[in-house]
């Protein structure tokens, strides 16, 4: 059954990472909850990781893999800071829905 699917090429991975990226993007756009937005940003970063690995695999040089580690490190730092901010806002506003902090406008 597996062989009928045929060879999984570079494009498949690119499509996958693009799809994940778009899902993450819509997550940021649509969802109202701050934490879910954080998660969707993480999703976008991981989508990029997939494309890095795919490119590195099909050009058989190792740069891609190294970049993945950098990206993951940065994603972790972002997540930490993001959550800290979300907690601080929750403590102050008692509200996690981003509709509530629109004081800065005009």
């Amino acid at each position: 059954m597996l062989s009928s699917i045929g060879e999984i090429g570079l494009n498949h991975y690119l499509i996958l990472s693009a799809a994940l990226f778009c899902i993450g993007m819509f997550g940021v756009l649509m969802r109202k909850n701050a934490l879910v937005i954080l998660m969707s940003i993480e999703l976008m970063l991981n989508a990029v990781n997939i494309s890095f690995v795919a490119f590195s695999r099909y050009q058989n040089n190792l740069d891609g893999f190294v970049m993945v580690f950098f990206v993951m490190a940065v994603a972790a730092a972002e997540a930490a800071v993001g959550l800290a901010l979300a907690v601080a806002i929750f403590k102050r506003f008692r509200e996690i829905n981003i509709r509530f902090f629109e004081h800065l406008k005009g």
């Binding site: 940021v28 937005i37 940003i41 990029v48 993001g82 102050r92």
Partner: peptide, 24 residues
């Protein structure tokens, strides 16, 4: 706090886009 959160979300969105660009 509100400004920081906005900056964070949009900043990381933009850097995700940039990263995707770098990958491509």
């Amino acid at each position: 706090k509100e400004a920081a959160f906005k900056y964070f979300i949009l900043g990381s969105l933009a850097s995700a886009i940039m990263l995707y660009g770098i990958a491509l």
